[in-house]
Nucleic acid binder design. Structure first.
Length: 371
DNA sequence: AAGCCGTGGTA
DNA sequence: TTACCAAGGCT
């Protein structure tokens, strides 16, 4: 390691990473890189987008499924967007899936199927912001980009005992990351910082005794690391209510619609439902049904979104299959192929308990959320 | 630039 | 139970 290009702190962290790095499906570990293997930019990009505000555990099966279905970015660019949305269903933040598809098309059509190899070039693509551009540039292209995500913010805020709250403190912390990022192995350094934040420098009860920075951490020396980073207070979530209508035909089909392309659950599939209102006194009765039928109340779904909590009253009716241009009838045993967000799967499960047999919908945790 | 945008795991 | 929050981006 060159002392001129790699500061002592970064060198120390890289040594820790060589011994304690996580093995992840999209990652090429230090040993394999030593043997000349490089990270695949498509894999790095796909994993980084999936990992935005999402846990490693949740991402793993989706990452594998996407790679099997679409082995290259050109394959993904050629895929029907409905297929991509259906494959993404359950991961959340569905604008990511729409942008993923748009980004793949841009790479395939405007960049000859190759990702730009600089932070600036990557930053112009849909769904790639400051963090993701830096991460891909560092991990896939060995660029010394300053990679800062929530993990890095936590590590840096503790290492330097940053006294101002997020998000205002971001530029200060970004400057610290820029200083620390080495010319050699910038991708490993970024991943090392994130591994450290995920496994040692955790939000609660950090394992400071095991931390490679425990001799340099100002928060550990002077304060309580658990109190960092400081954060601006957050608002509480309002409650919204509505009703959902599960219409089943005698042939065993269910009536579905497509949601508008943008906004909440944009482009995803739904059962008919009322507007979700903050009012406590209406919108949950059968008079708001999409068409008249013998609607029977069959339960309630509680679902928590990012900025509100939803209480959904579910109605069910068996009704002759009518032609309705606003949607389509889908066999109940074919729902797995649909782009149904989790809240819709919950609602359908309340009306048709066997709809997602074998899936998570019937887990004790899921049942507890529905009454 | 602050609000919008999902979901599941953890303590 | 409730609260927090995880490899953020877009408008």
């Amino acid at each position: 390691m060159d002392a001129k290009t790699t500061n002592p702190l970064a060198a120390h962290l890289l040594g820790w990473y060589d011994r304690h790095h996580r093995d992840l499906p999209w990652r090429v570990g230090p040993a394999m890189q030593q043997a000349g293997q490089r990270a695949n930019p498509y894999h790095v990009w796909l994993s980084e987008v999936m990992l935005q505000q999402t846990t490693v555990q949740a991402v793993k099966p989706y990452f594998q499924k996407f790679l099997v279905t679409w082995p290259t970015v050109v394959d993904l660019a050629a895929a029907p967007v409905e297929d991509v949305m259906a494959a993404w269903a359950g991961l959340g933040y569905y604008a990511r899936a729409r942008n993923l598809k748009r980004c793949a098309e841009a790479v395939a059509n405007d960049h000859g199927g190759l990702f730009p190899d600089t932070e600036e070039g990557l930053r112009t693509l849909p769904g790639i912001g400051d963090y993701t551009a830096a991460a891909i540039a560092a991990i896939a292209f060995d660029r010394p980009a300053a990679v800062m995500d929530g993990n890095v913010e936590r590590v840096i805020s503790r290492l330097y005992a940053i006294s101002s709250p997020l998000p205002a403190s971001k530029p200060i912390m970004k400057g610290k990351v820029r200083e620390l990022t080495p010319i050699e192995r910038p991708g490993d350094f970024a991943q090392a910082m994130m591994d450290l934040g995920a496994t040692i420098c955790t939000p609660k009860r950090p394992a400071c005794a095991l931390c490679p920075f425990n001799g340099h951490c100002l928060a550990l020396r002077e304060f309580d690391p658990e109190n960092f980073p400081l954060k601006a207070p957050k608002k509480q979530k309002p409650l919204r209510q509505g009703a959902a209508f599960v219409a089943v035909s005698p042939e065993g089909e269910i009536f579905l619609r497509r949601r508008p392309a943008s906004g909440l659950l944009g482009g995803m599939t739904e059962v008919p439902n009322t507007a979700w209102t903050a009012r406590q006194d209406g919108g949950t009765t059968a008079d708001h049904a999409p068409f008249s039928a013998d609607w029977q109340s069959c339960g309630t779904v509680i679902h928590v979104f990012t900025h509100f909590e939803l209480r959904l009253t579910v109605f069910r009716a068996v009704t002759a299959r009518s032609s309705d241009a606003s949607g389509w009838w889908e066999p109940v045993d074919h729902l797995e192929a649909q782009a149904l967000p989790t809240v819709m799967k919950k609602a359908i499960s309340v009306a048709i308990p066997t709809a997602f047999n074998g899936a998570d919908m019937n887990s004790p945790a899921m049942k507890r959320k529905s009454r």
